[in-house]
Design a protein around this nucleic acid. Structure first.
Lengths: 343, 343
DNA sequence: TCCTGTCACTGAATCCTGTCAGTGACACCA
DNA sequence: TGGTGTCACTGACAGGATTCAGTGACAGGA
């Protein structure tokens, strides 16, 4: 009883507004606003400024983001929408880097992970009217229009074959496939396999990587890579390996979509007593923390999330300022081959 | 030149307001509001309702979240604040489950991953005035007060020794440690080691788990577990294993903070040619996707993120409704031991 | 002395929505 | 015929911050 009423009264507490601060400092609301926002071309003597600042501090004033957003027509929030794909620690580090870079520009980043089995694609963007939306998957034309008319100024699609229009920033993941293939071909392998991930949500990522491998194979005059979908369990991986070894011209090196798939392959190889890298070379991608801990340690392609984040932030801020976003990626600093023992 | 001006004009496009919809449908603005919100006790004939709905559709009307939030005094957004710890796929699945559960209750979840090396702890919560804030780390008293006075109605701390006050929901991770220890003791082990994670951000999680192991050891009349901090590389893990084996009464089973640490131990064991589970049993926690793929497959404690999400959502919605949140967790359905080969 | 310009500040309009208090029109009952 | 009640809808205000267009006081120049 008592606790309930306490909770209620706590909820009922009035908000401290700039009006209250103005009263406390003995000035008009507008003056408070000018002081707090350091509005240019408004001359405020230090004495007044200090009075206002102290009053705000004393009352614990927090400006209402809703009111400010309403007035200014846009917020300082950037929304990143992620599909509920099984993402690993790579996403975590990228998000942390993005947050840091955006906050240097006065923007704050929030992420929305789409729900698992949701009926309607939800519309968080209309709940928080962000200044910009970032997605890692294609956005339908009319959804984009709806976002725009809801006040979103910049919609940046990070991955998608479809949305390759101006303002969008497609990470050149084909380059990852290229580097994988180049590495194993340089090591003397002549027939290459590709381990494709199972979850459909990963399509947009896997497609370009596979394409890179294909391109290199054809440039080198080799047969195209033999593609197997490899779910994350040892038995399936073992089957894939058997398939590759039973081909007329057997596969001796496999490029895996990412390090998790690569680790599945390692587990599968152990099951069928196939030696890695002796009988089969395996190269992963992403360089997740456990890649170095595998048996044998995984050769992989590392993605530099710091420079990735920087480029994304540059694009968004340019678009918000109405400028033309900068050109494309500096691939050289984005991807690095990490050579360990598996290939 | 042309492109810039196009961008600008695109930005300048007017927002479609409920006023526009009203004009289009030939009714008053309030009527539009009543129709769109299905306000109870307002009788609107179907003909008018349809006219309004169609007008809204035709104009592509999206209500301004800022104005609505301003008016109602609170938004329907729940903000989850995460430290930039190196989180794995466990966090991803939990977040997806949370999103789905919240959206059933009409709330949308966004996540803020705190930046890597940021000077001031940033204040996203005052950028989006959420209805509730969820954190996985302790919140200072005055920060909580500031949130409350900024309109946040419910602050729920999911993990913390300090914030064990009403309304907070502390996941009983001690139970995970208990289950790990009980499993290896039941298998006959007499001396237990604990592999503690290195990143300081993981303290709040690791502490309770370790405590659970300690409790079980003392209940069973064994020596307390020997604790080593194990960074995620094979060499460090190998050193830890050597240390455990050199003790007067050597450790024969290790409980690892999580599966990643456990995988590091496996890699370390391979380096020093220690057989698992023959010479050393290892049990992890979290059951991440690669746990089943390790060599040998990892015995671990799985966390049921679906029931975890449900409980969290129940707590938040109860608090928002002014009711007393439900009692504590149903541990039995939350954690399950997954027995594989490593212990 | 009068005019102009800067300083320091204020009043009011604006952004868009939710909601309360009405208001005609019409039906129903006595 | 007069009174009551529901229906279907409208007008106006509130919510908090930003910002434009002033305004009174004072200094400086002619």
């Amino acid at each position: 009883m008592r606790e309930v009423s306490e909770t209620v009264s706590a909820n009922t507490q009035k908000r401290v507004t700039s009006q209250d601060v103005a009263r406390e400092a003995g000035v008009a609301r507008s003056t408070v606003s000018y002081v707090l926002n350091r509005t240019p071309h408004q001359t405020i003597p230090d004495s007044t400024r200090k009075r206002v600042l102290q009053a705000a501090e004393r009352l614990g004033y927090t400006p209402s983001s809703a009111a400010r957003t309403l007035r200014r027509g846009r917020s300082d929030v950037v929304l990143c929408i992620l599909r509920a794909w099984p993402f690993g620690s790579a996403a975590g580090t990228l998000l942390a880097e993005l947050t840091a870079s955006f906050s240097e520009r006065g923007l704050s980043l929030v992420t929305h992970i789409e729900g698992a089995g949701m009926k309607t694609p939800d519309k968080v963007w209309q709940e928080i009217s962000p200044a910009a939306v970032l997605t890692y998957h294609p956005v339908p034309r009319d959804t984009e229009r709806a976002m725009r008319s809801a006040g979103v100024q910049s919609v940046v699609v990070l991955f998608s074959a479809e949305n390759e229009t101006a303002g969008n920033l497609i990470r050149p993941d084909g380059r990852i496939g290229r580097m994988q293939a180049e590495h194993v071909i340089a090591a003397g392998h002549q027939r290459i396999g590709y381990a494709y991930p199972e979850p459909p949500a990963l399509q947009d990522f896997a497609g370009p990587r596979l394409q890179g491998v294909k391109t290199v194979c054809s440039e080198a005059g080799l047969l195209p890579p033999d593609v197997c979908t490899v779910p994350l369990d040892a038995q399936s991986a073992s089957n894939a390996i058997k398939h590759w070894q039973s081909l007329p011209q057997p596969v001796t090196a496999v490029c895996a979509y990412n390090d998790e798939v690569a680790q599945a392959l390692i587990a599968g190889a152990r099951l069928s007593r196939v030696d890695i890298p002796g009988e089969l070379a395996i190269i992963g991608a992403d360089d997740i923390p456990t890649a170095a801990l595998a048996t044998p340690p995984l050769t992989t392609i590392r993605i530099d999330h710091i420079s990735e984040a920087r480029r994304i932030v540059d694009t968004v801020t340019a678009t918000l300022a109405g400028k033309e976003p900068p050109a494309s990626w500096d691939t050289a600093e984005l991807f690095t081959a990490v050579i360990r023992e598996s290939a």
